[in-house]
Computed example of a mutant assay.
Amino acid sequence: MPAAPRVSDGCYTFTPSGLLLISSALPVIGAMLIELRRGIALHPATFTAVIAPEAVILAALNGNPDLRRFLFLFICGNYSRLISRISRDAANFEVRRPFTADQLLTILNEAGHTIIFIEHDPTLFEGAGHLLGPLSSALKQAGQESLVILYAPAMDRSFSALARQADRLIELLLPQEPERRQPYLGTRSVRDSALPKAQQTLEVS
Rank of each mutant, 00 (worst) to 15 (best):
L202M: 09
L82H: 07
T48Q: 08
P5D: 02
L67P: 08
P98R: 06
L33R: 15
I86H: 02
A101D: 05
D121M: 09
L132A: 11
E203R: 11
I34M: 06
P16L: 08
S87I: 01
A138L: 05
S160H: 09
L26H: 06
T13C: 08
R68I: 02
E203M: 04
R97K: 13
S23N: 04
L173Q: 08
A198I: 07
P134E: 15
R164N: 11
L36P: 03
E54P: 00
S205E: 02
V148K: 02
E171V: 13
R88F: 00
D192H: 07
M1W: 12
E35D: 04
S24M: 04
R38I: 02
T15F: 00
P134V: 14
A128N: 08
V204F: 04
N78K: 09
A3M: 12
F93G: 10
A142V: 00
L67W: 09
S84T: 12
A59M: 06
R6Q: 10
R188G: 02
A138C: 08
N78E: 14
D156Q: 05
T100L: 11
D102F: 14
V7S: 05
T114E: 12
R96T: 15
N109E: 14
D9I: 03
D167R: 06
I170N: 03
V56T: 15
A101V: 12
E110W: 03
H113S: 15
I149G: 13
P178T: 09
R97V: 05
D156R: 04
L202G: 01
S80Y: 01
Q103P: 03
S137H: 08
Q103K: 15
R81Y: 03
I86L: 12
S23V: 01
P2V: 01
A198M: 01
T123K: 10
F47G: 01
R188L: 12
P196S: 13
D121E: 15
E119S: 06
G63V: 01
S84A: 13
H130M: 13
L105W: 00
S137A: 12
T114A: 14
E119D: 09
L71A: 07
L26T: 03
L42Y: 11
S84E: 15
T15Y: 00
L173A: 06
Q182C: 08
G63F: 00
L139A: 14
L162N: 11
S136M: 07
A31G: 09
A55F: 01
L21S: 02
L67I: 14
N62D: 08
H43V: 10
S87C: 10
P44L: 05
I75A: 07
R191C: 04
V7A: 06
K140V: 02
M155H: 08
N78I: 13
L174K: 10
D66V: 15
Y184Q: 03
L169E: 10
R81L: 12
S137G: 08
L172C: 10
G112F: 04
H113L: 03
A55D: 07
A60G: 11
Q144P: 00
L19D: 05
P98V: 07
A90I: 00
I22Y: 01
S84V: 05
F117G: 05
F47E: 03
A111D: 11
A3N: 13
